[in-house]
Amino acid sequence: MFAEIAFLLYLGHLLADYPFQTDHQAAHKAGCGRQGWTANLSHAATHVLICALLLAAGSALLGWHLPALPAVAAVLWIGATHGFIDRRWPVAAWMRIARQAGWAAHGGAAHVDQTAHVLALTLAALFLAA
């Protein structure tokens, strides 16, 4: 069941990060003030909604019996971690600590960002499959 859950959560991540993320969210989700936080939280909420819908579909179609409270906790975890990572400073801090300034200057931050998101999704899938 882990593989199916992980796949659906990853699909939800891709859907929320690419076709369902607005230009405004992408441009402002790391910004300060109300505009930045609104963009960030609405983007994170998109992740929560899409992942919840995919988990519900997986439960219905594949006969899973996911307990409601852990499933809610998992999608809230996804939303919270996604919003945190997308503030951008955590990725920049990691790359600074890991001495990856050269890679950061050549587009590496996007890869570190996506790896952090996949780690959070994997932890959610492990939690739900356990």
Rank of each mutant, 00 (worst) to 15 (best):
G12A: 10
G12H: 05
H13W: 08
H13E: 06
H13C: 01
L14K: 04
A16P: 13
D17N: 12
Y18G: 01
P19S: 08
F20C: 10
F20T: 03
Q21I: 04
T22W: 00
D23V: 10
D23T: 14
D23Q: 14
D23A: 14
H24N: 13
H24D: 12
H24F: 12
Q25M: 15
Q25A: 14
A26V: 00
A26M: 12
A27Q: 15
A27G: 07
A27N: 12
H28K: 03
A30D: 08
G31L: 11
C32A: 08
C32Q: 11
G33R: 14
G33T: 15
Q35A: 12
Q35N: 03
Q35R: 15
Q35W: 02
G36I: 08
G36M: 10
W37R: 14
W37L: 08
W37H: 08
T38Y: 07
T38L: 14
A39L: 03
A39P: 04
A39G: 03
N40R: 15
N40M: 08
L41D: 00
L41W: 12
L41N: 03
L41Q: 04
H43M: 10
H43V: 09
H43C: 03
A45D: 06
A45L: 15
A45E: 01
A45F: 13
T46R: 01
T46E: 00
H47C: 01
